[in-house]
Structure formats: C-alpha cells, structure tokens
Simulated assay, not measured.
Amino acid sequence: MSIVAAAPTDYTAPGVEEFWQPLIGDGAWAITRPMFLMALSVLAISIWLLVTTRKKALVPSKGQMGTEAVYGLVRNGVAKDLIGSHEFMRFVPLLFTMFVLILVNNLFGVIPPMSYPTMSRIGFPIALALIVWIVFHVVGMKKHGFFGYWKSLVPSGLPKGMIVPIFILELITDLFTRPVTLALRLFGNMFAGHILMVLFITGGWYMLTSGGILVVAGGVTWVFAFVMTLFELLVEFLQAYVFTLLAALYIAGAVADEH
C-alpha cells in the first residue's frame, strides 16, 4: 500500500488570481487590498516621519537616527553622487519619498497580516515610473530648452547617414524603454517573489497535512519558505534602491550640462 495514498488531491497552486483581492465592490472600480495597503503605507510613513522628527536633537533618539540614516542614504548615496552637488537638493524630496514608499510597500509582502507586496500590482509601478518620466523630461527641457533637449539626443560628430537612425533609437529609449523597464523591473520582482513564497508556504502546508512521507517533504519546503522570506527581504530593499537609483540617473542625464 502506498504511504501517500491518503493524501488529499484538492491542492491548487497559486496563480495570478492571488493578486486580485477586492475588498469593496468588484470590477474596475473595486476597492482592492493593494489600494488599502498603499493608503496604509502613506499613513504609516507620515506618522513615522512626524514622530521621529518632531523633537530633533543634537544627540538623536533611535527613531531620529533611523530616519536620518535612510534620508542620508538617498541624499548622499543616490542624489548627490549621481545628480551632482549643484543640482541634487531639489530632487531629494522626490527621491526620498519614492524610496520610502516603495520600500514600505515591498516589505508589506513579508509582514503579517499584510503579507502582500503592493508593487506586485502593475498599476503602482507604472504610476511611479510615469512620475519619473515626466520629471526628467520637464527638468531637461526647462534647462536646455525644448529643441535643445531633444536635439542633444544625437551625439555630435556622427555621420549624416547615422543621425536619423540614432535619433529614432534614442527617442524610443527616452519615451518608451526607460519608463517601461523601470516599471516592469519593480513589478516583475515583487510579483515573482510573492508568488514563489505563497507556493512554498501553501505547498508545504498541503504536504504537512497529507501524512506519510509528504510530512518530511512539507517540513523541508517550509524551511525553504523561510529562506525565501529572508532572500525576499533583500530583494525588496534592493528593488526600492534600484528604482530610486535609476530615477536619479535619468534626472542626472536630463540636467547635465553636456546633455
């Protein structure tokens, strides 16, 4: 007799439906779980910033020290290094806001009871990428002029026969490739990481409750789920950092004197 004969057969692997979780209503106008979590993250970040900066001191508290460390990472490690000391300060609020917002919403994926990375819904990364896209084009045209900004897409000294193809390629990159890849990179990592974690956790539970040798396999699977969670924490931080880094890089290219 098979030792797994009593195992249930109703396990369904997680799919894209895991990411559509309406709370109020249905269809395109539904209030969904990721919408609620995004609003919750804005509230939590606002409270955190108010509490940790309300009584600033020369000898900072742990909360103030943590806020200053995150701010310093974005201000000095991203904005100043990439955009330059003359231009960077006016972009720090935007970059700091994006980094913290993305990081908190990513971390929701491993924090109960949220257990959902908001950026795994493609609409949120697209909205953030569009903001970056608008900002770096607007500041570039404001500094170099409308025609000067677009003319600078073509490097000087090119043969006449290469000017049009290069201009078209650079135009596609600036208008399409940059915002699309910026959004898809964040979305793809959060989507894939979350669905893998759900697969390991639910699959492990299925095997643990199946009896027989599957109990051992279920235990091993849950160990992998724990390892995956630790790895996902790293990915969530890195994706927030990479998104902010690329946003600063695009802005730096738009305002550079040699653009």
Rank of each mutant, 00 (worst) to 15 (best):
S2V: 05
A6E: 06
P8F: 11
Y11A: 02
T12F: 13
T12H: 11
A13H: 06
P14R: 00
P14C: 01
G25W: 09
D26E: 13
D26H: 10
I31V: 14
T32E: 07
P34I: 12
M35Q: 14
M35L: 07
L40M: 04
S41D: 04
A44R: 01
I45H: 00
W48Q: 02
L49Y: 12
T52Q: 14
T53M: 05
K55G: 01
K55R: 14
A57H: 12
A57T: 10
L58V: 01
L58I: 01
P60R: 08
S61V: 04
G63I: 13
Q64W: 07
M65R: 12
T67E: 09
A69N: 10
V70C: 03
Y71K: 09
G72S: 04
R75P: 07
A79V: 15
K80G: 06
K80N: 12
D81K: 15
G84K: 01
F88S: 12
R90N: 04
P93R: 14
F96P: 06
F99A: 03
N105W: 00
F108H: 07
I111E: 04
P113F: 12
T118H: 01
T118Q: 00
M119P: 06
F124H: 12
A129D: 05
V132R: 00
W133D: 04
F136P: 13
F136N: 15
H137M: 04
G145I: 13
F146I: 02
F147A: 08
F147T: 11
G148Q: 13
G148S: 11
K151F: 08
S152A: 15
V154G: 06
V154I: 15
S156Q: 14
S156E: 15
I166S: 10
I168N: 15
I168A: 15
E170H: 04
I172Y: 05
T173N: 08
L175N: 00
P179H: 13
T181N: 09
T181D: 02
L182W: 03
A183K: 12
F187V: 07
M190K: 01
M190Q: 06
F191N: 01
G193R: 00
G193A: 04
H194F: 02
M197N: 09
I201Q: 08
M207D: 06
L208T: 03
S210N: 08
S210R: 11
S210Y: 09
G211L: 08
L214K: 09
G219A: 13
A225N: 10
T229F: 02
L230H: 09
F231C: 03
F231Y: 10
L233Y: 05
V235P: 00
F237R: 03
Y241S: 02
L245D: 02
L246G: 09
L246Q: 11
L249H: 05
G253R: 13
A254T: 05
A256L: 00
